[in-house]
Lab assay of single mutants.
Amino acid sequence: MQIFVKTLTGKTITLEVEPSDTIENVKAKIQDKEGIPPDQQRLIFNGKQLEDGRTLSDYNIQKDSTLHLVLR
């Protein structure tokens, strides 16, 4: 499925993911596309910070959902 990740600069990254993917996996995909190390990434969905060990389906993230990427 496709999800979107919006950065603070207003750029939107499109990712191909599975609901069973962990947040860690998603961060690795963002690193592949953008070169941002996962330990600098914080992903936010519906105002909640997403934890590495959880999956997209844990957070009820579905296709065409938009996550927000904050760098630390």
Rank of each mutant, 00 (worst) to 15 (best):
K48Y: 04
L43Y: 15
F45K: 02
I61Q: 00
D39W: 09
G35E: 02
L50E: 00
I61D: 00
T7W: 11
E16L: 15
N60E: 06
L8G: 05
I44F: 06
I30N: 01
I44R: 04
L56K: 00
K48D: 09
R72E: 06
V26N: 00
N46V: 11
L8T: 14
D64E: 10
L69A: 02
R42W: 15
G35M: 08
I36D: 03
I23A: 12
I61Y: 01
I61S: 01
T9K: 07
G53T: 12
E24N: 14
H68T: 03
D58P: 01
D64Y: 03
S20K: 11
E24W: 02
G53R: 08
V70D: 04
L56W: 01
I30F: 14
G47S: 15
L67G: 01
D64G: 10
I13V: 14
T9Y: 02
D64Q: 04
K27E: 02
V5A: 03
K11Q: 15
D58M: 10
L71T: 08
M1N: 10
I61G: 00
D32P: 07
Q49M: 11
N25Q: 06
T55P: 11
I44G: 02
T55I: 02
I36H: 03
Q31W: 04
L15G: 00
Q40W: 04
V70I: 08
S20H: 14
I3A: 01
D52G: 07
L8M: 06
D64T: 11
D64M: 07
H68D: 09
I13S: 11
T9W: 02
H68G: 05
L50I: 13
T55E: 11
I44N: 06
E51W: 10
L56I: 06
K48R: 07
H68R: 09
K6Q: 11
I3H: 00
K33T: 03
Q41E: 02
S57W: 07
L50N: 00
L43R: 00
V26M: 11
K11M: 10
Q49D: 14
L15V: 09
G47N: 03
F4M: 11
G53K: 03
K29D: 10
E16Q: 09
D64S: 11
V26T: 11
V5W: 01
R42H: 15
Q40S: 05
I44K: 13
D58K: 07
E16G: 14
F4D: 10
D21M: 12
N25W: 06
P19R: 12
T7D: 03
K27R: 10
Q49R: 14
G10T: 13
E51N: 09
V17R: 01
Q31Y: 10
S20L: 12
V5R: 00
Q40Y: 02
L71I: 10
G35W: 02
K11P: 05
G53A: 06
E34Q: 12
K33F: 13
M1T: 02
I30Q: 00
L67T: 01
Q31S: 08
I3L: 13
F4N: 09
R54F: 12
K29L: 09
L43K: 00
S57G: 14
N60S: 09
I30W: 01
T66S: 07
L8A: 03
Q41N: 04
D32I: 03
S65R: 02
T22H: 09
I44Q: 15
E51R: 13
K29W: 04
T14M: 12
N46P: 01
V17G: 14
Q31L: 13
G47V: 14
G35D: 04
Q49S: 08
L67F: 03
N46L: 04
K33G: 05
I30E: 00
K11W: 07
R72S: 10
Q2E: 03
Q49V: 08
E24I: 07
D21G: 09
T12R: 07
F4A: 05
V26G: 00
T66G: 05
K27A: 02
V26F: 13
T55D: 14
E24V: 02
R42K: 13
E18I: 09
Q62I: 14
R54A: 08
T66A: 05
D21I: 03
I61F: 13
R72F: 04
L67R: 01
L43E: 00
V17S: 07
S57M: 05
Q62K: 06
V26H: 00
V17Y: 09
P37F: 08
D32G: 05
L43Q: 00
R42I: 14
M1V: 15
T14G: 15
L43S: 00
I23N: 04
I61K: 00
D21F: 12
I3T: 01
R54E: 13
R54N: 02
P38T: 08
Y59P: 00
L69W: 08
L69P: 00
L15R: 00
N46R: 06
T14Y: 04
E18T: 06
D39S: 15
G35A: 04
Q62F: 15
A28D: 13
K29N: 05
I30H: 00
Q40T: 12
E51V: 10
K29I: 07
L50Y: 01
K6R: 14
K48G: 14
I61E: 00
Q40G: 05
V5F: 09
N60A: 10
K63A: 07
L69T: 01
S57I: 05
T9S: 12
L69Y: 02
K33S: 08
I44E: 05
M1P: 02
L71H: 05
E34G: 07
V26Q: 00
I36G: 09
T66Y: 04
Q62G: 05
Q2V: 14
P37I: 14
D52V: 06
P37T: 14
R72Y: 14
E24G: 08
N46S: 11
N46W: 03
T12V: 06
G35S: 10
D32E: 08
Q41P: 04
R72P: 12
I13A: 06
Q40K: 08
I44D: 12
G35L: 11
T7G: 08
G47H: 14
T55K: 14
